[in-house]
Structure formats: C-alpha cells, structure tokens
Design a binder for these strands. Structure first.
Length: 1027
RNA sequence: GGGCGCUUAGCUCAGCGGCAGAGCACUCCCCUUACACGGGAGGUGUCACAGGUUCAAAUCCUGUAGCGCCCACCA
C-alpha cells in the first residue's frame, strides 16, 4: 500500500536512476511537429578544452530550466547541444602536451599529424564535457549533438565563406595583428592579457641631415624597433620643432633617411621630448599614423619567430631582447644616447603561450562590416537594425547597448588565424604577378580548367582578381636606403574560392601553381553560424538537391529556426551574439533568435571573476557530489538575479578529516598547491582546476554553504511527501469544491494559485531568482509550516480526512510540477512515489497523472481561487498564533493555562479568536500550541511581546515586575512617538489628497491600531503596578 | 579616458517611492510519530557619503568615494 520512503533524500541514487530513465524514454528528443509550437535553444557550445566550470553550470542550468518549463507547457522543445573546436585554445593545449611528452613541436609533427592528435584529444574531452552536462541534468536532445568541425558545420562554413567572398564582403588585406611569436599565429585582442612589467624609457637623439649641430631627441620604450623607423613625428603646433618639419634624419643603424613629420594625434608635446619615432609595422598607433601619412614607409623588421629579419641589416637573426641591447649599445658608441629611466610599461601577453605579443604586419582575411556603395547591405548596419527594430531583444535590456556600440564602429572582422586546427580557408591563391598582362594570361588559363569552369558556371566557385598595380592596397614596403617615401610594388593576385570540396578542380588549380591558404578561420566564424548550421543550413545547395527539398535536416531548419532564446554571458555579446545575428540575417535572411538572456557572473569569494589562470575556479561536480545536483541547480537559479554578479565563497574540505578550511585570497594569488589542515595537520591540495592528480596529496573538494538551502529544500519536499504517503490510507480521488472547503484550504489554494501565476510570470521575464524564492516560500513557509500542521487534526477525523487528503495530494502534485524545471531529480522521485499512492489526483478535478514529472503539464489554477479576503483572515490568524507561541515561549506557559490566553488577553483579541472558531480545530493541532513544559517559570525578558498578550502576562504573575514595568513604559513612549508621526501625516492635507486611497486608509488603520496598543499597554502597566 | 554595474544584518544577496527582508551564521527552548538537511521563538541595520525632488526616499535626481566588469589607450 503506502510506499515507505527513507527518512532523507538521497540525491545520488535519484540522479542516476532518472538520467537513465529519461534517456530510455527519449523525452528530450524533438522532431519537427506541425501541431506544436516550437521552443528552441541552442547551447553556447563549450570549448572542448578542459572541464565545465561554475559558469557553465549556471548557464546550462538556466537553459535547462527554460527548456523543461516550455516542454511542460506543451511546446515542441528542442535544446541543441554541442561543443566548439576553439581553435587556439585547443591547438595550444595539445601542442603543449606533445612538447611535454615527446619533446616535439608542431613542425616536427606536421600539419596532418597534429590535426589527427587534436581530433583524438577532442574525442576524449568532448565526451567528458557532454557527460558533465548530462550529469547536471541537461535535458538536451543528445541525438542532435554537434561539433563546430562536424561535416554539417563545415558545409555551412564553406557555403558562408563562399557567398561572402562572391558578394565582396570577404577580402584579403594587411593588418597589424597581435602576433604570438611562440605559437606563430595572430591572436585576437581578447586572447591577450595586459600586464604591467618593469621596462625602460630610453631617450636618444638623431642628427638632422645637413645640419651638423642640430639634433632632435626622442624617447622610446622599445629601442629595437628603431630598425624599423620610417619617420620622426612632432606635434604640428609644437614651437620647438616647427622649423624641423620636412627635414630628414639618417637612422644610424640602417642608414635610412627618414623624414620629420607633424601629426597631432600621434605626438604629445607634454610627453617625453615631444618627439616620437614612428614604426608603422610594429606599433598600432604608428600604424594609424602611417595611414594618415602614406608617404612614409612601412618596414617590417621581424621574422614570424620574433627574430630580426633582413630589414634589420647587421642585426638580422638577433632575438628581440638582444637586438634591443645591441641597438642601444650602438647609440652609445655614436654618442647619440641620452639616458634611460625605469618605467612600468603595459605589456601584452598572449593568453595561450604566456609570451609577449608582437604587433606584426601580416596578410589576413577580413569580413567587411562597413556600409557599401552598391545595393548590398552593410553587415554592421544590418546587424544593428535587428536590435534597434526590436526583433532581437536583450534581457536585461541594457546589454543592447554594448552590442550597438561595438557594431557602430563597423570595424572589419579579421577571420583568418595562422593555425592548423579549424576550418581551412577555401581559397586558392595564385603567385604574385607583376603586371596586368600576366594576370590576363593567368585568367585565360583558368578558363581552360574544365572542372573549375564547370564549378564557376554552377556558382560553386568564384574567381577574384586583386589588382594592386596602382598601389591601392597597402603592401609590405621596403624603402631603399637614401630615399624615403613609398614605392609601391605591384602585387596582383588571383584568388579562387571553392564552395565545396572539388578534388578535380583543386588538382587543376595546383597544376597551375595555385596554393590553398594555409590559414584557418577564426573559431567565431563557425560559432557564428551555430543556430542555423546545427539545424542543417544550407540545406539543399546543389541543383539536384534543390529539386527535392526533402532532406530531414532541412525540415529541422524550417521547424526550429529562428530559435527562441539565447542564454549566454555578457563578455561574448560582441564576439558571438552579434556575429550570429549577422550571419543569420546574411545567410538565412532571418534573425537567429528572438530573445537574448544575459546571465550574471559567478565570482569567487573575493569578487573576482573565476578563471583557470587564476586558479580560483570551483568544480560544479564537487558541489553536486556534496549537495546533490538539485541543490546545485537551485543555488544557480537562486543567484540569477537581474544580472547582479554573485560571489561564491568556498571552503576546501579536508580530504582526511572532512573539516572545512576556508579559502584565502593569497592561496589564489600564489597558486598555492599545498595546504595543511589546521585540524588534522595533514597535507592536501586545495580544490580547483588542477590538470593532474598529485599522488602524494589528495585534492580537496570544495564546498559552499550557499548550496545548503537547495539541499535542505529538496529534503523538505521529500519529507512533506513522506508525510502525505503515511497519511494516504483510504485515499479516494474526487473533485474539490472551493466553497465547501474550510478556510485553511481556501487559503492554501489561493496561495497555490498566486504562486503558480507568479512563478510563470517570473520565468517569462527571466527572473530566475524569483522563481526559486517563490517556490521555496510557498512550499516551506506556507504548505509545510502551516497547512501540513493544520491538516494533522483533520486527517484523524474520519469526516474531514478524505477532503484533506485530496487537497494535500493535489497541492503536492502542483508543487512537484512547479519545482520540476529547477530540481528535476527530487521532483521525479516524488512524482513516482505519489503516482503509486495516488495515481489520480489534482485540483480542482483529479486526473490520471502523467508518467513522468518532466513531461507533466505545467500547472495553472482558476483565477477565482485567489482571494485577498481569505489571505488576510489567515494572516491575522497566523499573527495570533505567533503571539500565543511567543508568550508561551518567553514565559514558559503550560498547556492548562493556554485557554486563559484567549480569555485574559484583551477582549478584542478574544473576540477575534471566537470569530475564528473555524480554526480552533486546526489550531489545536499545531504542535506548539498544545505542547509545553508543565512548570511555568519566568524568563529573562527582552524584545517586545505583542501587546494583546500583555494582559495575560501580567496576570500570570511570573515576571520581574519592576523590569516589566520599565519595559512597558519604554514601549508606551515609543508607541506614542509613532502615534504622533502618524497623526501628523494624516493631518497633512497634501498627503490625504495626493496619496492613493488605500495608503491613506492603511495609515488610518495604523493609527487606530497604535491607539489600541497604547491603551492595552497602559492597562497592563496599571495592572502590573497593582493600581 | 569612455561605457555599464555594484555599495542594505557578521557572510551571501533580495527589495527599487508608502511600518527594513530572506538564506546561512548567532542566542534561547524543543529528539511534539514528515523532516535535527527539523520545529518554535529571539536579537541583529546611520540601507556607502553629501546635497536635492516629494506630504513621504534604501527606493527618484545630482555629486563624492570605494569596488567590479567591458571597451579604448598609455612613444
């Protein structure tokens, strides 16, 4: 009969059981279904490097809450899971591994072998990450799992590149990029860190040509770049140098003549000597200066590995640091050295290799973002319009601004990366050609390639000429010694882009000496396509495919695109969100999602962002292990307030003696890898993202009391259900008629209806924290604390029992539904228990329960159940009960005198008690009203006892009369003060006329209340004094 | 330098015009047959600071300070 549950909820058993069950049932697999409205979320694909962290836990929990909720609401819910290949991050991890284990670098391995190793590595870590996602309860459609290098994604990437190339959005150009000399690749700005480093501030001078006695001095933090100087620059209004502008100096190391120019943006008269050297190829500001002064040269002096190249003359081959010393030394020898001062300089460091970044001029591919002259849309503007028009909405709204501001700059997007791991750029490039005739010949040759011509005719290949004869495009310039000014070298190219792999055409191209670009695409290029590439875009692309548009993937695209909500973190609004909107509009002609919810950030206990490099991360699996998945999820939902970031202080739990050892900030900064337990004095390694185990020292798990709330909550529901199951003997389903129910039932149903409505509204507004709070308060403070207590009496009464059982089962049913999106495991466990005992249940009319909570219908209750009147009466009753308890607790009143309370306290209250006669039965069963020690004894007083019970207290005679009198007097004085304030308020005409009627009424009630209280207190005081 | 947040109880955070709140921690009482991951009661606050608007400000406005994040920049 009644199932007997264990006394406490065991999260581990439940988790394993339900994960398996859900999967077997296939609840989370979605297929296109015309009868249901779709609700789609694509996961922000986690990098295949490393493990999940707290940020993932937060982000994915929230997505899962939305998906589970919408699924219950009857939507065709699809949560598309997957992972990202994360170009640099992944490649450098594997490169490092290979270097450690085999002492080989990537060039030793070769491209194919390295890529093969990375795939191997990826398979392993992807499985781990997906496993972790599954463990946090993610109800994703695992059958659709995607990876950004999957064939479906590759196809979409290639198609996008092809179209953009064809439409003139993608071009090749030279840019100063952040060059990682160690990994020999460019890295994005966000993949660098800027750290203050001790450096120097050198001042040198050059002699002005033709004027033996005239010198001009300048300062620099990087003397070695003097080898690449192509000008000196002063401020145009700087009187000190005005007469020198237009003259030249001879750079002593290279013998190059360089001009003195004036540029108001580059030179700051107040800084240093007011004169600055210009190295366009190795400094972003100088590069910008060159763009304003194209007459000066751009001289690259570095090899990709960071050594000086042939442009550095005799310094060729030297490492940067050695070159710096040598260059400085030479200046000393020439008597051109002035001084050197210590200075902290901001040094850009590559996130991946931890080596200094070198600004470096190189060939890159770009996506043009600016407006266009032709009819085609400007990509940035188009992407902005999607948000300004309200088609894509941000929650919280303010984040739309970061999006718009960034796009507003319309800066071109550099999409090439000098890596091996990623989508290779599908462009074949000719050798540079000197003149137009050569180009014409080359063009003609291309037309003789049959496979290629065929592809061109089918719009599956595109040929583009890049004519630079006029020097329109910046090229790497080397000025001849003794002359300055740009000498444009003619560099004409033919580029061929293939829309899909085409071995024959590729063979033809290579026969003509064309080479495929070595570069791969920026990871964000493939992530940008995620919402549509994972759904099968571009669908049929070949003519024969287009003829029959029946491919299943194409159906998915039509069924689920645009997706509903994107849940992501604020720091990739520009890198990712904006670009998804861009490619969605460009490729599909529609936005990728309707709403973007930006999650808060989980910070460490000291308010800093968690990161691997800081070593302050927390492993969600530690939390799950200690408190259970539901508790972890509840904690995440609870902290997701209006994007208020939230600190998560943690303690290491000593693996030897289980004592909590607080994490200190210095552990983090020093990356402490060893701690001694203050309790058992044994050593352990603090918890955190350490890559390997330490055999000598076990690693501590990390805990945080912030997850206790969720754990306790799960247990509370568990036991509430347990209580019900113990009292379900003889249960019969039956409809519930509100008007026939006792007040406490009406109250409970009113609260249930209110809560359900509020929870639904909170979910709709992405107010996750409210969801957790609302459910918690209703379950704990209302259902358990009051209703269950009051039901105990009725369950013993044969007449009242059936009704009480139905209400209990019905409300619990609603609770399990409400809590399911947040705490699916405990909900499912209790759903099962309840199903066995009361398969038919529910309010107002019972029905057979669904086979699982996760597919149960989302609840909603009649609006008519919500009654302010009932809730107010119940609230007053609670107040009275609390008053009684307080008196009893403070003065240790025994059971026998309990009734006296009602009689001896002020007559008004007694009357109220009588008016609430309907509650007397239920009241009696609230344990604390009936139980209590037999012997009354006085207790030290403190605080305020509700005035309505003062009479009783006085009569009880168990008190320190002098102290009580004093306390009463103070209370009376306080009350009088507050009475004056309220009177003044009500006497104020402006208040009475301008405040809302209910507010004024509340003040009047308050006034009356205070007056009554004062009278009562004064009465008590009199009695106490024996007057 | 530009932008966006934050500052409320010992800790972590809600509240965002109308009698200062929750969880944890703390004090006292209670192993009352759902739950000690529990029950009952209690204490705890110049709502960062300074001005202003308002009958009324933790809440709105202005400024100041401290903290955090993003973006630019620092020869």
């Amino acid at each position: 009969m009644a199932t007997e549950l264990p006394k406490a909820y065991d999260p581990k058993a439940a988790q394993e059981k339900w994960l398996t069950f859900w999967e077997q049932k296939g609840y989370f697999h979605s297929t296109p279904d015309a009868t249901k409205k779709p609700f789609t979320i694509v996961i922000p694909p986690p990098n295949v490097t490393g493990a999940l962290h707290m940020g993932h836990a937060l982000n994915n929990t929230l997505q899962d809450v939305l998906i589970r909720w919408k699924r219950m609401q009857g939507f065709n819910a699809l949560w598309m899971p997957g992972t990202d290949h994360a170009g640099i991050a992944t490649q450098s991890v594997v490169e490092r591994l290979v270097l450690q284990q085999e002492k080989k670098n990537r060039h030793d391995l070769g491209r194919d072998e390295l890529v093969r190793r990375i795939w191997e590595w990826k398979d392993k870590y992807e499985a781990r990450i997906l496993g972790q996602l599954r463990e946090i309860g993610a109800s994703a459609d695992w059958k659709r799992t995607r990876f950004t290098l999957d064939p479906v994604c590759a196809r979409a990437v290639r198609e996008t590149f092809f179209r953009m190339f064809r439409d003139g959005y993608i071009y090749r150009g030279k840019r100063l990029v952040n060059w990682d000399t160690h990994l020999q690749t460019s890295v994005a700005d966000d993949e660098t860190d800027t750290v203050d480093t001790k450096g120097g501030f050198w001042t040198f001078k050059y002699q002005v040509d033709g004027e033996a006695d005239t010198f001009i001095s300048f300062s620099t933090t990087r003397p070695e770049t003097m080898l690449g100087d192509s000008a000196l620059c002063v401020h145009p209004s700087d009187e000190r140098y005005k007469h020198l502008v237009g003259k030249t100096v001879t750079q002593p190391h290279t013998g190059r003549k360089i001009p003195i120019i004036a540029d108001g943006q580059l030179a700051d008269p107040k800084l240093g000597t007011g004169c600055v050297k210009v190295t366009p190829a190795h400094d972003p500001n100088d590069y910008a200066c060159w763009q304003r002064h194209p007459e000066i040269a751009v001289i690259n002096i570095l090899n990709p590995d960071g050594t000086i190249n042939e442009n550095g003359g005799e310094y060729k081959g030297l490492d940067r640091a050695k070159a710096r010393d040598a260059v400085t030394e030479k200046m000393k020898e020439l008597g051109l050295y002035i001084d050197r001062a210590d200075r902290d300089i901001p040094l850009k460091i590559s996130d991946r290799s931890k080596t200094p970044i070198e600004p470096y001029l190189s060939d890159q591919w770009f996506v043009k973002m600016a407006d266009r002259d032709d009819a085609k849309p400007g990509l940035a503007q188009m992407t902005m319009d999607a948000v300004t028009s309200g088609k894509v909405k941000f929650f919280p709204e303010r984040y739309a601004r970061s999006y718009l501001d960034w796009l507003g700059e319309k800066r071109d997007w550099c999409i090439s990366r000098q890596l091996w791991w990623g989508h290779r750029i599908p462009v074949w490039q000719s050798k540079p050609m000197r003149d137009k005739d050569t180009v014409a010949i080359a063009e003609r040759r291309l037309t003789q390639c049959s496979a290629l011509s065929n592809a061109v005719a089918n719009e599956r290949a595109f040929i583009k000429l890049e004519i630079n004869t006029e020097g329109a495009e910046p090229t790497l310039l080397k000025s001849d010694a003794g002359a300055f000014g740009a000498v444009a070298t003619a560099t004409n190219y033919i580029y061929v882009c293939l829309a899909e792999p085409n071995p024959t055409a590729e063979q033809e191209l290579s026969g003509l000496g064309y080479q495929q670009s070595e570069d791969v695409l920026d990871t964000w290029f493939s992530s940008a396509l995620w919402p549509h590439s994972t759904l099968g875009w571009p669908g049929p692309t070949l003519p024969e495919e287009r003829a029959e548009r029946t491919a299943p993937d194409w159906d998915a695209m039509r069924a689920y695109y645009p997706t509903s909500t994107l849940v992501t973190s604020r720091d990739i609004i520009t890198l990712w969100v904006a670009r998804m909107v861009l490619t969605g509009l460009y490729n599909v002609g529609d936005i990728p999602f309707h709403q973007v919810y930006i999650t808060p950030k989980v910070l460490d206990g000291f308010g800093e962002t968690m990161s691997k490099s800081k070593g302050n991360g927390v492993d969600p699996l530690d939390i799950i292990d200690l408190y259970g998945t539901d508790a972890m999820r509840y904690g995440m939902v609870k902290l997701a307030t209006e994007t208020q970031d939230s600190k998560l202080p943690v303690a290491n739990i000593c693996p030897h003696c289980k004592k909590d050892v607080a994490v200190k900030q210095e552990h983090m900064y020093m990356r402490t890898k060893k701690l001694t337990c203050p309790e058992c004095k044994k050593e352990f390694r603090p918890g955190g993202p350490w890559p390997t185990e330490d055999p000598d020292r076990p690693t501590a798990k990390q805990g945080s009391d912030r997850f206790e709330e969720g754990r306790n909550f799960a247990n509370k529901m568990w036991n509430a259900t347990r209580f019900l199951l113990m009292n379900l003997e003889g249960y019969t389903p039956g409809p519930v008629k509100l008007e026939e129910l006792p007040t406490e039932d009406k109250w409970l149903l009113s609260r249930l209806a209110t809560t359900t409505k509020a929870v639904t509204a909170a979910l709709e507004g992405y107010k996750f924290s409210d969801v957790a709070r609302l459910v918690y308060d209703f379950v704990w403070s209302e259902f358990c604390d009051w209703y269950i207590e009051m039901s105990k009496g009725r369950l013993k009464d044969a007449a009242a029992r059936p009704q009480a059982q139905r209400v209990l089962a019905g409300v619990l049913d609603g609770i399990l539904r409400l809590v399911q999106p947040v705490m699916p495991f405990v909900s499912e466990s209790l759903w099962e228990a309840l199903r066995d005992a009361a398969p038919e249940r529910g309010l107002p009319t019972p029905a057979r329960a669904e086979e699982a909570a996760c597919i149960a219908k989302w609840p909603s209750y009649p609006e008519a159940w919500i009654s302010a009147d009932v809730e107010a009466r119940f609230a007053r009753m609670q107040e009275l009960v609390r008053g009684v308890r307080e008196v009893r607790n403070r003065y240790q009143v025994d059971d026998k005198t309990k009734l006296d309370v009602a009689v001896k306290c002020s007559t008004d209250v007694a009357a109220e008690f009588n008016a609430l006669a309907a509650f007397i039965g239920p009241l009696a069963s609230i344990s604390n009203l009936t139980a209590g020690p037999a012997v009354p004894k006085p207790k030290p007083s403190g605080g305020v006892v509700r005035p309505e019970f003062e009479a009783y207290v006085a009569l009880a005679g168990h008190i320190d009369e002098a102290a009580e009198a004093k306390r009463l007097e103070k209370q009376i004085a306080d009350k009088k003060k507050s009475l004056e304030g309220t009177k003044a308020k009500l006497a104020n005409e402006k208040f009475v006329s301008s405040a809302p009627a209910e507010v004024v009424q509340a003040q009047r009630d308050l006034l009356a209340d205070i007056e009554k209280q004062i009278a009562s207190l004064e009465e008590n005081l009199k009695e106490l004094k024996g007057e």
